[in-house]
Every structure is written in C-alpha cells, then in structure tokens.
Design a protein around this nucleic acid. Structure first.
Lengths: 337, 337
DNA sequence: TTGTACGCGTTATCAG
DNA sequence: CTGATAACGCGTACAA
C-alpha cells in the first residue's frame, strides 16, 4: 500500500540495491537486460526513488522558491508564470511564499529557506522596513538570490527591473501634453526603490515642462481598497486634480471607482494613467492608458539568471542586472472623447 | 561559508549531537542553560537543522502541492491564495505546478509527486482526456488528493465545488427574464464535469421557460484569444444571438471584444453574463454581470480538507464533498441602458 | 541530564 | 557487470 523502497524492490529481483539504483541513474555500466527487468518491475510496483533520500545524498533539492507580496495580482501571477516555465524546463520544482507585504513574514520565509530546502530564491520585496541586515547575514550562506521589480538596493544580488524612470517620465509627459497641469502621483510605499524611481520620473517630467513639483500632490495610499476610496475621495474633492499618475494598478482602479462616484468624466475632467499588467485595460470604462510591464518575461529572466548561476561550475557570485522595457499604451482614459 | 551542520555545532559547544538536537525539538528533557547556550550559538552561526535530513528521518516533507491549469487567471490565483493561507497556518510549504491544460503534463506531475516530495495534492484538472486510470494506480499509494472546481468524477477523492448547476440555471433564467430567446452557451471543454453541470443548468432553464434547446447554440471555444475572436465573430454574425452565457470568464472577454468590433451594444443588442472572478467587473464597459465563485474560500476549504486528513491519526481515507455557493451579480451587461 | 549508536533511502566508491 | 559499504544530516531508543 505504502511507498516501496529500493531495498524491497531489490529483494523482489534478487539483486542488490546498488544495481537497482544504477538502473535509474544514467551512468555506471549495467546489463541492458537486467536494467529493463528492473525498470519493468519498478513500473509494476510503482516504485520511484525517494526524493528526500536522494536530495540528502547529493545535497540538491531541485527546488527554487519565489517570494512575492501577493499572488492575486496580474503582475505577480504572470511573473510567477514565467518563473514556472523556466523552472520546469530545468526540471526544478517551484515553491511559492506570499508575504502580504508583511516584513516579519518576509524575514521568516527567508530564514526558513536557508536550510537546504531550496537551491535558490527569486523575490520581490515588501519594502516595509529599512533594516535589511538580516539579508546580509543570510547572503553569506551563498544561496543565490535574484530580485525582480521590487528590490532592496542595499543588498548585493542580481536584479531584474524595468525602465521605471523613463516610463514614468513619458507617462507624466503624456499627461502634460494632454493639457494636465495639476497631476497627482499616487503611491503605496515611498520606501520602495521603484517607488522612488517612478516618482523621480514624474518630478523630472514636470520640471522639464516648467511645472512646479508640489509635495501635496504626492498621495500616500494603501493596499486596501476601502482606505484608498476614502483617501482619494478626499483628495479629488479638495485638490481637483486634472491628471492622475498611479504607480500601481490598484490605485488607478480605486481612482476609477471614486471618479464614477463623483461623476467625474475620466479622460475629460480627469485623465488617468498607471503601471498595470491588466490584460483587459482596453475594455474598461473608459479604456485605461497603461504602462505595461513585461511581467512574464521578467519572471523568465529572473529565473534564467538564477539557473545560469545554479548550473555554473564555479561559485562566482556574479551579479547581473537586467532591465526590460515597459510599453506605454495610450487609451481613452487620457484621451477623452 | 557554507551551511553548518549539527555535528559541527555540537563540536563547537563540546556537546553531543543528540543534545543539540534536543535543544531544537521541544520534547526530551534538557537543561535550560545548555539549551539556551545552544540556541545562542546556533543563532550566531546561523545554524538551522537541514530539512532534507529531518524529512528523511521522519518521512514528512511538510510540503503540499497545488496543480492547476494556469496561474495568470483570477480564479486560480485567488484559489492558490486561499490554499497558501491554510498551508502557512499549518506550517507547510507550497509547491505549484501548471499544466497549461496539457494532460501529459498533468500525468507527469502527478507521478513525480508520489515520491515523498509532498504529503498531499490539491488539484484542478485539465479534463483533456478520458483515461484517468493513471490516477487510480497512484491513488493506491494513499497520498491524499483533493479536487477543486474542475474534477474527475470517476476518481475517488475529496472535492470542493460550487453550485454550478443552480448558478447556471439562474443566470440563464435571468437572461430569459430580460427578454432573451436566442442564447448561446460558450464552453471550452465539454468533457469537464463542470462544463456538463453548467450546460445542464442552461438546458433546464431553457426548458423551464418553454424555449427549445438548440445544439447549434452551444459554441465550442478555445483557450486562445485569437481563435475565440474568430469563432465568436463568425457565430455572432451568423446566429445573431441576443444572449450570451459564457461558462468561463475569458469567453465573455472575447465576446466583449467581438461586440465592440461589430458595434453591438452589450446590454441592449446582446446581453452577456459569465462565470468570473474578476474584481473589476463593475468597471468594464459596460459593467459585466457575473456568477462570482468564492475562489479564495474554495482554496481554503480544499486545503482544510487536506490538512484534516493529514493531521488525523487514523488513515481512513474519508471522502468529503463540499459545495460552496456562487453569487449572481447583475450588472449593465444584462440590463442595458 | 547527556552521550552512543542506529536507521531513514539513496548513491558513489571500491572490490570482486 | 554486480555487490558490499560508507556517508549524506538528523532524531530517538537506550544506556550511562
């Protein structure tokens, strides 16, 4: 009933465990006939080598981990999709860990994973704290780490990002070109390096157009829809912005709800653009202008970097930094009708 | 530099490995002072028990697997979210496997997982084949399996589903009540049991209203957007349906694109409703009427069933079948304006 | 309270 | 070509 092991299989065949083992691993000479006999019997008894034992033996778990803030999110789920693709191609298994933007959890996950459970980690950080020393400590254990999208700049590791600064600059410039002069910048976490990069693009685009940067137009938001509706409701009433640049998708979504409530005509009264991986942006009412990140490719690229490292003979901890390009897609929400 | 093991740690402390081991595992009496000394040193050297070894020792991997067709999909990503929540609460790790609706891959994953790598499996099937004998074979190994949403009826395992039949009946009835008489039913895979259940609800609602069931109004679609646009473009031109009941979200999305192209006014010329887990259904143009499945809860429930089984002392293979309720949310796409 | 010794299931090495 | 043996790192009887 329960799993059979190599010893029992060997007994059934009147062979030694070593011979049976050889039948499964490619190398080591073995008689063709006996090999076939072994494999046949294995199939019949549904035997497969126990992974925990093999892993212990050669210190390889053939598993990698992905740590992300959330999964019910277009960007991250597509990125994971990309990672999975590469992991599978390499014959690796994939474990996922969700931090829900909880720094404690991030630390806990990272610590747990340094036990031989996984051979490498791909991660998009919470950014909820400034003390990343725990990471430096762990980094010494030399298990490869690759950041994507949301990174800690003070941690020495490979990174996959997009051209956030340029995209933000273009998006903001686009709003300005469409006649916006009071553009709010919506952000969840200003500590994140990508938050900073994106804001810098926004700032510089304003400056380039001779518009002042106003601290009040930078709006700190949340990850909870309810809170965001409150915040944005107040802001839109008080400031009456004519442009909205949302650094993440959910803030644009919240803006849509608020505008619908306030009877603001998106695209005319107020123009909205955001970073987003939403496939159906063009089906929204009105169609949403987006900066679309290549989520799937980012996941693939992060995984490729990781496996390049895992498959390399030498243990040089080569740091790679790959930048992929986002695409600015203009739709009704910034054009109007 | 590399990971330290229990032996080395013991040496540093002039203790035996057993004592050190005891410091980590709760039971077995141990001097409080020595325990603290050990833990302190462990922290300093960043020691953590090797999981592969522990797992081999007590034959527990503390890992479960989720096998789903895809992850870049609102329904599945939320379901995984629910599973993760429960897994984490139970101190378990989570591995994910994506079949991309490829039956071969499903078989391959299932086989690989019966090596002690995971203790249980949660799965939503591809439904691409009719021969599930491979599963029966594996089932004998008695590693717990829980299906959710998409199941194989001929496999004896616990299941979490929604009231597909009733929802479909109500949705179809709603379309009829709104005056539709030529309602197409869009489906990707008629082999799937949920495909059948949903279609039966559709059929029975037609009959209850005295409308004929027309074979031609059941449209076989695909998972690829391009193909669906072709198929639906042809169908909408030829049949001129006044109602669309899409068994999955992506088919409603494709319908939207086609209607926009053909200048059909959704909600008036043609009413659309579908199964969907799209958060922002109300922001679409027009707002999409949906049958919303409790994806997150389904994932949680599936995981709860699995852990109830894993944590139970006796190995009785109790089969549970939980049915959660979907919610019918009427919006503009079936109301018109 | 602590130490000794064995086994979990594999596989590489070394003999034969 | 095949068999015996040791070792991967840990945890637990059992002994002290």
């Amino acid at each position: 009933m329960d799993s059979i092991n190599i010893k029992q299989l060997a007994e059934r065949l009147n062979l030694s465990t070593s011979t049976v083992s050889r039948a499964f691993r490619g190398h080591s000479d073995i008689n063709k006939e006996t090999k076939e006999k072994i494999l046949a019997m294995a199939r019949e008894l549904n035997y497969q080598p126990n992974h925990m034992a093999s892993n212990l033996r050669d210190k390889k778990s053939r598993t990698i981990a992905v740590i992300v803030p959330e999964i019910a999110n277009n960007f991250f789920s597509r990125a994971i999709n990309g990672v999975e693709r590469v992991a599978r191609d390499n014959g690796y298994h994939l474990q996922i860990y969700l931090t829900n933007d909880d720094f404690e959890r991030e630390v806990s996950f990272m610590s747990q994973l340094h036990n031989g459970r996984v051979e490498g980690i791909i991660m998009s950080v919470t950014g909820e704290a400034n003390d990343h020393s725990y990471m430096h400590k762990l980094r010494k254990k030399s298990i490869p780490l690759v950041f994507f999208d949301r990174t800690y700049d003070d941690v020495k590791a490979s990174k996959v990002s997009t051209n956030d600064y340029e995209s933000s600059f273009s998006a903001t410039k686009h709003l300005i070109d469409r006649g916006c002069s009071r553009i709010v910048y919506l952000v969840v976490n200003k500590n994140l390096s990508i938050g900073k990069m994106r804001m810098q693009g926004y700032k510089d685009a304003l400056e380039a157009a001779g518009l002042p940067f106003v601290e009040n137009l930078v709006i700190d938001c949340s990850n909870e829809l309810g809170k965001n509706l409150d915040i944005l409701g107040r802001v839109f009433s008080a400031i009456r912005p004519d442009g909205v640049f949302a650094s993440v998708e959910r803030l644009a979504i919240a803006s849509y709800y608020v505008c619908h409530n306030m009877n603001l005509k998106i695209g005319n009264d107020i123009r909205i653009i955001c970073f987003s991986s939403l496939e159906i942006a063009s089906l929204l009412n009105p169609a949403l202008s987006t900066i679309t990140q290549p989520a799937y490719d980012m996941g693939m690229e992060a995984a490729n970097i990781l496996f390049r490292r895992l498959n390399s003979e030498n243990n040089d901890d080569i740091i790679e930094h790959v930048v992929l390009e986002s695409e600015l897609v203009i739709r009704q929400s910034t054009l109007g009708s």
